[in-house]
């Protein structure tokens, strides 16, 4: 069962020792990989006669941009870079199990952080678009009796986001570990394809899709 634990990677020896979780360290690795990849791939981009690699990169980034842009709508254009970043980060975090790291999204702290940022962004977008007064009023819509539920939603939305991601990744991780213990040869491959890659990317997409949907709802 020790695989399930989120271990402390190291402890900063100040204030009586601050534990830095494994998920944070893996996040750093993901960040480093992403940024290095970006720098390497975006070297000498050409406007005319782009190479195959550039075309692929453009297709990936442009497609991602178009997808997120379509989900969040024209008004929410300013939130597209954040949503794209979260999508790429969660995608990488879910898939990184393939490389022997523990997925950071298996750590509840990470999903809480992601969901918390999402709800902050959603409400911020609402306030920015409508102004504080209208935003406060929007809690009483469509009828006044809905107000408690609307307020509850502020908690429910991120909770569901956080738990969905956490549960999926944890479940996938547990099943994969079990399969690896039972049949360590050949059988884990198709399951790994599903749980590590497909489910991981789907969860990343779902997380961003729901966040952008809420943002769209908030700014309309």
């Amino acid at each position: 069962m020790e695989e399930l634990n989120c271990e402390t990677a190291f402890t900063i020896p100040i204030f009586g020792g601050i534990d830095v979780g494994e998920s944070v360290v893996v996040s750093w690795i993901i960040m480093a990989v992403l940024v290095l990849l970006s720098i390497v791939l975006t070297r000498n981009l050409k406007v005319e006669n782009p190479g195959k690699g550039q075309l692929l990169l453009e297709m990936a980034v442009g497609g991602l941009h178009g997808m997120v842009n379509g989900m969040v709508g024209e008004k929410g254009k300013r939130y597209v870079p954040y949503l794209m970043t979260v999508l790429v980060y969660i995608g990488f975090a879910n898939v990184i199990g393939l490389f022997g790291f523990k997925p950071p999204t298996k750590d509840l702290t990470v999903t809480i952080a992601l969901a918390g940022m999402s709800i902050v962004l959603i409400e911020f977008a609402g306030i920015r678009e409508k102004g504080t007064k209208k935003w406060l009023k929007s809690f009483a819509e469509p009828v006044a009796i809905m107000t408690p539920f609307n307020i509850l939603e502020i908690l429910i939305k991120p909770l569901s986001l956080c738990m969905r991601l956490f549960g999926n990744v944890l479940g996938a991780f547990v099943i994969m570990e079990l399969i690896k213990i039972m049949v360590p040869i050949a059988l884990p491959v198709p399951f790994s394809l599903y749980f590590d890659i497909f489910d991981g990317l789907i969860q990343a997409y779902v997380f961003v899709f729901l966040t952008s949907l809420f943002i769209k709802e908030a700014i309309e």
Partner: peptide
């Protein structure tokens, strides 16, 4: 760790914006 993750994401956002998007 939560604060770390949040900061990580924000830093990643800035870097990705600068180097990729």
């Amino acid at each position: 760790n939560l604060i770390c993750i949040v900061l990580n994401l924000l830093i990643l956002l800035v870097l990705m914006k600068k180097f990729l998007y």
